[in-house]
Amino acid sequence: MADVRIILVGFGTVGKGFLNVVIEKKSFLKEIYGLNLHINAVFKSDGGFISNTNTGLDIQSLLSIKDYKEHPQWVKDVKAYDKIPEMEADIVVELTPTNIGDGEPGLGHIRQALKSGKDVVTANKGPLVVAFQELITLAEENKRFLHYEGAVGGAIPVFSLARENLKSSKIISIEGILNGTTNFILSRMVSEKIPFEIALKEAQELGYAERDPSYDIDGIDAAGKLLILTNTILRRPEERFVKFDEIKIESIRNITQEAVELAEENNLVIKHVASAKEGKLEVGPKLLPKTSPLAVSSTLNSITFKSDLAGEITIIGEGAGGRETASAVLTDIITIFKKRIKTKNNN
């Protein structure tokens, strides 16, 4: 049995989703993988829960307490940034909110973790968009793993499919619907014949879109994901890393109901498609045949890899949600630990 000591940074929807999944999968992880996960600390922006035992925090008590500040392990004003280097842990799970502007606070947390010899699992796009090259280099220099399956496509195993299962193929291009909110809006415009504004309002009422929806509908979120996909999967070792401002981004704001109708007459649908093809990086509305595997409905995401040997492969799944993203985070933890055990055995 291997003990995995975890520091969790971020106690929002995804962070709590992850803790719930850790409880739910406790015996499964022990029986199948021989892993015993201990959550040694959980940090929020205004403090943290820090375990004073070797077995980690009682997760159930964290999730059920009404006022977290009343929790016996709560330490006010303590910062993850300061505590990560000091604490003993194997993996830092970074799940703070995405900030594509400067990548903070996640970027600082990931730097601290890698520098202090801890592996990192994150679903936070911000640090990867802002400092992809720096973080990859930092992980390599410190011989640490940096995994981020949950950052793109939520539960969909995008990176492991490309990395593990398509090893013999060279991936030539990537195309996908990478944002569930825009896909929900466009799907409703088709199915309910409603204008953009109404579909957006509906998405906001259902909690799929934020009050300020620009991050989703203007393509910023999808572009961030496209950058991570391109740098991870398409970039050859000798090539440079692409940057965010190289992506041509177009919003879905101005799509008219008439455009949706005119497309439908020819069995086409308008989708917000992110594509990396022949050196061009774009996020914008595109006409797809209704029968295209990419043309998924509602909040689903889809990604097509085009490769030299395997041809086109499309994967579809829920691109967001606490539980779905938590599944990707947990898979990353298992992957890292399997690799660590293998390295240990080889030595």
Binding site: N254, T256, E258, A259, E261, L262, A263, E265, N266
Partner: peptide, 15 residues
């Protein structure tokens, strides 16, 4: 060429 035209101040859509 197909066009759907609204009021002059509104955008039109052409296929």
């Amino acid at each position: 060429v197909y066009a759907m035209i609204n009021r002059p101040e509104d955008p039109s859509t052409v296929k």
